[in-house]
């Protein structure tokens, strides 16, 4: 088993158009590093100065990682990680 990562349209230039990619790691940070090895450039779009970029939201099993330790959030096999740009509601 691996961790499924859902990629938004805007970042699929880094995944050859794939909507989902798979990766491994104990934390979100490790997972992003693992994916970056096969999808170069993705990390730079997600992370800046050691933190998630302001307009990037990442969810582990639908929960916003910013409330689970951010890049240090724990992940494990079978989790679904969703990346989305921040958009307005209301």
């Amino acid at each position: 088993m691996a961790i499924e990562v859902r990629i938004p349209t805007i970042l699929r230039t880094h995944t050859g158009g794939a909507k989902t990619v798979e990766g491994a790691g104990k934390t979100l940070s490790e997972l992003i590093d693992d994916i970056e090895a096969r999808h170069v450039g993705l990390k730079e779009r997600l992370v800046h100065n050691g933190d998630l970029r302001k307009f990037v939201n990442v969810y582990v099993n639908d929960e916003d990682v910013r409330f689970r330790g951010g890049l240090g959030a724990e992940v494990s096999d079978g989790d679904v990680v969703t990346v989305l740009p921040a958009v307005a509601g209301g």
Partner: peptide
Amino acid sequence: VYGLRNLDEGFVP
């Protein structure tokens, strides 16, 4: 709905 042209167009109230 997430079809932004680039990530800088994202929005946080």
